[in-house]
């Protein structure tokens, strides 16, 4: 049994906590959130205790094996370093950090403290994406040539509006498209060049939209769309190869769509709500996999170095937007620090 402490009771923290609560080989030791009410609500739903700080939780709990960091991105580093110093294995939500230097420091620090570091690139655990990768690997569509991926919906509102602070979240490109960057790199190998255009720096409205082109060393070309300018979340993937095409669009292929006429008790009426029920959701599978890797001392499907590379692609896209030039990823130590409007 692995004892897990989740930090952050927001959108991701509550998802992770619920997954551990259901997991036979995990014990959800507690959940931490500076917002006591939020922490308590998740704790109640998941049958655990809540704390208002990491220190208080560590003081009160007899045993913690893993610290799972589900905080806004700029807070990842401090908590990952702290947990490693305390000798705890770490699971951290993506993006690992806001800068490559921070990401490197976190990876090195965990290594030097002898703890494992896993990063939540959960797209690799989404059934449809994992299935597409299997088909690709089985050669069903021949050699991949042009790939289109996309994700997004409305503008996310997180704790203290941290998503709309570009210096904190990196906007859609870093926060959400990094999922696709990681998945595509998993499927098609190393990226040679990145070119990107985006709304960041062009408009001050609360909208973000990015169109990124990746050129892989294999020659394959991928187009990735990220949007925080649309209504309703959706994601899509299409891989065209020499022998066929694999396509998926969550907006089109909907297994379950409910609609409640307005005015019902409980609210939430008036908009169609899509669901895609599976026995084990991707977050559950991801986190169980990470715990299994700890128990059995195995390499995960997605490593911290993979997370670093995905971050490098995302930051290269931001750099390309800023300079209007393609960014060569082979070119080593390119300066990928990006000037945020709000500061980084």
């Amino acid at each position: 049994m692995i004892h897990v402490l989740v930090i952050g009771a927001g959108a991701m923290g509550s998802t992770h906590a619920a997954a551990y609560a259901d997991m036979p080989n995990a014990y959800l030791a507690g959940i931490v959130d500076t917002d006591a009410g939020k922490g308590a609500r998740v704790a109640e739903a998941c049958g655990t205790s809540s704390f208002t700080s990491y220190a208080k939780a560590m003081e009160a709990l007899d045993r913690v094996d893993v610290v799972d960091v589900c905080l806004p991105t700029p807070l990842h580093k401090k908590h990952v370093l702290q947990a490693a110093d305390d000798g705890k294995h770490v699971i951290c939500e993506k993006p690992l950090a806001r800068s490559l230097a921070d990401a490197r420091e976190m990876i090195d620090h965990c290594r030097s403290r002898g703890v494992r570091l896993f990063v939540g690139h959960v797209l690799r655990f989404f059934h449809e994406y994992a299935h597409a990768k299997r088909l690709l690997d089985d050669g069903v569509i021949g050699n991949p040539a042009v790939i289109r991926a996309g994700r997004g919906g409305g503008y996310p509102i997180g704790w203290q509006h941290w998503y709309s602070d570009f210096g904190a979240s990196g906007g859609i490109t870093l926060d959400a498209m990094i999922h696709d960057f990681d998945f595509l790199r998993w499927c098609f190998g190393e990226v040679e060049r990145v070119y990107a255009k985006g709304l960041h720096g062009r408009v001050h409205a609360q909208l973000d939209y990015s169109l990124v082109t990746l050129r892989f060393q294999s020659g394959a070309i991928a187009h990735v769309e990220g949007t925080w300018s649309h209504e309703g979340f959706s994601m899509n993937l299409e891989i065209a190869g020499t022998q066929g095409i694999i396509g998926y669009d969550s907006a089109r292929d909907q297994p379950l769509l409910s609609f409640q006429r307005g005015g019902h008790a409980g609210g939430g009426g008036g908009v169609p709500v899509p669901e895609s029920p599976v026995e084990e959701n991707p977050y559950f599978q991801e986190l169980r996999h990470f715990l299994n890797c700890i128990e059995q001392d195995e390499e995960p499907i997605v490593t911290a170095e993979d997370a670093y590379e995905a971050l490098r692609i995302a930051l290269s896209a931001l750099k390309s937007m800023e300079t209007g030039r393609p960014v060569d990823l082979g070119a080593g130590a390119a300066d990928l620090s990006s000037k945020g409007v709000i500061g980084s």
């Binding site: 040539a145 042009v146 255009k197 062009r202 169109l211 082109t213 065209a240 095409i245």
Partner: peptide
């Protein structure tokens, strides 16, 4: 895959591939 910048600040991409089988 083309990325296009217009003179009024609009940007666009265009996929012109013969990628349908």
């Amino acid at each position: 895959i083309l990325s296009i910048e217009f003179d009024n600040g609009v940007f666009a991409t265009l996929d012109c591939s013969w990628s349908r089988n």
